[in-house]
Design a protein around this nucleic acid. Structure first.
Lengths: 353, 353
DNA sequence: TCTGCCTGATTAATCGTTTAAGCAGAATAT
DNA sequence: ATATTCTGCTTAAACGATTAATCAGGCAGA
């Protein structure tokens, strides 16, 4: 008995039906002129033989691999799962595969990673750039996910609006003394979030900003952020640019005996994996990654199609008509009314709940 | 001026030098018979023209795509970044690309994800299986990363030994009352970790196991785990099968006013992103992902090579000669000697530090 | 000188698709 | 009745590499 050697190809189907391979191709793609009956016969025969098209051969012929590259500043980032999952799903829905590339935490590698992807002839690249880097003309369609305030951004969350959500939430609860926590002022995303927060704070609010990297540069990584000092000075609301920092704040305060949210409120961003299971569960602002990924992938595919139709030497940056997707606040347990005994310059009488 | 249309191919180099394409191929691959001088000329010309080989064409001809698939139970998992990064690095070092596939959290999708990868003719697949699923003959080389106690496992951390590390650490600090925290008893990884811990606990130790999913089935996701009850009953050591659960324990205890590590010690696994920055920083057991990834990828490549040399219809599961890589304990701030006032049935006098 | 071997190249087939071009017969138009 | 357009299919040429087979000389041995 002859064992099935490899998966059958178009010629096998053609031979089995006594037609030409071209006809099989046309029938399966629905492109050329094939009679409905024959087309049907071909399709059933293909299914019967378990035909699987060779994407490699198709790629060679058409010059399109059906694969998208994904470059992130740092695969180790806790936000990576969300992004990767969303992009993978959006790409899969569009019939594309996703090739990942790690820039291993440094800027040169980002370029190298992109090159490696292009050698594998990806049709386009989705990149979440490291801050401080500009994605230029890569000679390949690119979709950039960063922040609306980044030039060349394709689509991203409306981080500014997200910041406003946080400010409104906390101010609405009665807070007037805010500590804003960021990591690095160079990041557009963080700047937007913090800028958005500041833009909505009440006029009589007192605000201080803490930049983690500055503190760590002095006291070492993982060091305390000096939040108890803020508490003693009457601050009640801690708004971090990130759930990781929010978590850090929560544990630092909790460890010092502060009850959350009774004595202090903490809010983060991104709804990271642990945010809902710690005690108390963290109030956060969530990105609609599925929407972002879909918009990014679609914008990318649009550029790819257009490039394919016109000049092959385009390689531009994809631009979505709708470039900022709104964020949503998820109120959980780390935010509440400021306690009376802790509120200075507070106009409304908050209750301890 | 004619602009460079696309990246030049072998024929372009051949034409520029007045030789045949085959010679160029031989020169660049070093396979056929080419005079050293000509080979050198070809190489410099290739560099000069900026020649990039078409991996697609090569894949079509050789039947090998140079791409590995990576399938995980859930891309959203916080461990994903570590695994993905390690696999990507190991694969890149071996000249391979990595295509990711999300099984979107359910078992059927795992099979589908694998199929999608195979359609893209990956040369092999690295899979971290969902628990409860067996990876059978896929018709394609597979490396399984799960646990040494899983049949068909290629390589993984020695979770049992990791568990022993935890037990030794805590027992060495003087603890005698242990709460072991797991999520799901079906997971081989978690069972190994917990089994390893149990195997090294002192004979006079008191042990209780908490399964999170059981509790959540009753009280809902993210609910308290009832750890204060354990504290009141004299337990001082909380060993979780995972940093996520450890963090959950830390915050739950902290929130209730327990000082860590003075009144209770907590240990986790995996050294997840936040473990080093929360207060107190979490003592954990780290996996050597780089080693695991390298072993897995190498074992996979071995099967690929062998399959390529012999019968094309193999598709077996890769087996590494060294299938378990040791874990290392990272002692941080959540583990310490048990306080005297809390220690029941404790033989040594622990100090409050 | 003739045979045989080695060297350094070329030729041509192949991988599996896609697709432009061609072609025979039927249907329609003039 | 003849010219034209469809229709349904086939032919054959790509895509860019790899590789087995071939071939022309040069050189050594008999």
């Amino acid at each position: 008995m002859a064992v099935v050697r490899h998966s059958p190809n178009m010629s096998a189907i053609a031979a089995a039906l006594g037609v030409s391979a071209a006809t099989v191709s046309n029938a399966l793609s629905g492109k050329g002129r094939v009679s409905p009956e024959l087309a049907e016969k071909i399709r059933t025969k293909a299914a019967e033989l378990g035909y699987v098209p060779s994407l490699t051969a198709r790629a060679l012929r058409t010059g399109r691999s059906g694969v998208l590259g994904l470059v992130l500043p740092n695969i180790g980032n806790p936000l990576f799962p969300q992004i990767a999952q969303a992009i993978e799903n959006a790409a899969a829905d569009a019939g594309y595969g996703v090739l990942i590339a790690d820039s291993r935490g440094n800027n040169n590698m980002q370029t190298l990673a992109i090159q490696r992807l292009m050698e594998r002839q990806v049709d386009g690249i989705v990149v979440v750039p490291r801050f401080g880097t500009r994605i230029g003309d890569l000679g390949c369609p690119v979709a950039v996910i960063d922040s609306p305030s980044t030039p060349g951004n394709t689509v991203s969350s409306d981080h500014w609006q997200g910041g406003q959500l946080v400010a409104d939430h906390l101010a609405g609860l009665g807070h007037r003394n805010f500590v804003l926590i960021g990591a690095n002022p160079q990041s557009n995303v963080q700047n937007d979030r913090i800028g958005g927060m500041k833009s909505r704070l009440p006029k009589d609010a007192r605000v201080e900003v803490v930049w983690i990297e500055k503190i760590e540069a002095v006291s070492g990584p993982g060091c305390p952020l000096g939040l108890m000092d803020k508490i003693e000075r009457g601050f009640t609301a801690f708004a971090a640019s990130n759930d990781l920092h929010a978590l850090r704040a929560v544990t630092e305060l909790q460890r010092a005996g502060i009850r959350i949210p009774d004595q202090a409120s903490v809010v983060g961003f991104d709804d990271l994996a642990w945010s809902s299971v710690v005690s108390p569960a963290i109030t956060t602002v969530r990105q609609d990654m599925a929407a972002i990924a879909e918009i990014a992938v679609n914008a990318l595919l649009a550029v790819i199609d257009q490039e394919n139709a016109e000049i092959p030497e385009a390689g531009g940056i994809a631009i979505a008509q709708h470039d900022r997707v709104p964020m949503t606040l998820v109120a959980r347990q780390t935010s509440g009314r400021p306690a009376i005994f802790n509120s200075q310059g507070n106009t409304i009488k908050g209750e301890i709940r």
